[in-house]
């Protein structure tokens, strides 16, 4: 069974700094390995095959919001997590 690993970072930034963060993630996507780390663990993401990519945006009065979401299932994990079972 795979363990549950989480990473969260929320902050205030100017647009330029956010660009730097996005570049770090883009580079990871291009190189096939996105690394996020906390003191206790490194969470390695290997984006391979087909990934779901969602861009959501909203403008309401003074409020602006852009949401990016990339999601996928890693193949190895699926194979390990769901072995074929044969009923007795």
């Amino acid at each position: 069974m795979s363990s549950d690993k989480k990473f969260e970072y929320e902050s205030l930034q100017d647009a330029g700094s956010i660009g730097t963060f996005l570049t770090a993630i883009t580079e990871g996507m291009n190189n096939g390995r996105v690394l996020l780390s906390t003191a206790d663990e490194h969470i390695e993401f290997i984006p391979r095959g087909l990934l779901r990519f969602l861009v959501k945006a909203r403008k309401k009065g003074a409020e602006n919001k852009i949401t990016l979401k990339i999601a996928w299932n890693s193949k190895e994990e699926i194979e390990i997590a769901k072995p074929l079972t044969v009923g007795r």
């Binding site: 990473f7 970072y9 730097t20 770090a24 580079e27 996105v34 996020l36 780390s37 906390t38 003191a39």
Partner: peptide
């Protein structure tokens, strides 16, 4: 603790 996003 420190955090890391890629190289940052």
């Amino acid at each position: 603790s420190a955090l890391g996003i890629g190289d940052i």
